[in-house]
Amino acid sequence: MKQLFLQRANARNQSIVLAMVCLVLLFTDIRYTYLQPVRAFAGTLTEPVFWLSELPSRLLEGMRVLSQDRSDRLGQLAALEQKIKVLEARQLKMSALASENRRLRELLSSSEKLDESVLIAEVVGISPDPARHYVMIDKGADDGSFIGQVVIDSTGLVGQVIETTTSLSKVLLITDQRHAVPVISLRTLAQLVAEGTGRFDRVSLPHVPESLDIQQGDVLVTSGLGQRFPKGYPVARVARYELVAGDAFASVMAQPLSGLQTLDYVLLVFDREAPQAFAREILDEENIDG
């Protein structure tokens, strides 16, 4: 009996000490980056949990594919083949432009490269906490992914890698409250910053002065300022512009161009100078639309 009471007193002391430790850890991890390596290492150890949690959706997907009608799938296949043809044709034009661009750059004796190298990755997990917007992808340090690496999909900027384990990476989405990306408006070349809001369909553009020419429908691409994101990846389209008379700044919201809530495959970018041609193409399309 005596033993038991001793144990209880111990538990109380232990819990006080451990709660303190947790507070110190919280403070350190939120304010500083010292614990990053620990996280990467421990993340590698806990990878099996991720694969387990992904099993149910894999099974469901497998069942869906099995139960799908054969003719449906043949139809899908045909549609995909057509799409490949169209993309190949466009690629042809692009490579001609790329070589022309390279020649011009050589004339200007600029050493910038236009070849882009990307790695396709599958989204294998999404954040269980709605206050944090991130996804897990199935490429890690072993595949060459690194912290700060830019992640895009076929429609626009997705985010950046903030953690890597040996075979998984965590990608912070541009809509996370902690994320900001320097952007430029394609129509007026106005420099702005797109900040995450914690909502998947909105990024906010703070400190837009009254005099700045921004309107609904403007496409924002990365400006390359800050050196983290290469220039020219499409980010968002301005969805709402509101200027209350008397306020110094307008309230501007933009909608991310990539469907961040329905990501399945994303691309890891290995080249920092690649995407300018891509943006120009978007701009051309915009002009045609307009």
Binding site: L26, D29, V38, R39, F50, D129
Partner: peptide, 17 residues
């Protein structure tokens, strides 16, 4: 904390208490 992507100590504090 590692698995759910929270800062270290977030779940720890909760569970210790």
């Amino acid at each position: 904390d590692i698995v759910f992507g929270a800062p270290f100590g977030f779940h720890g504090l909760n569970y210790v208490l």
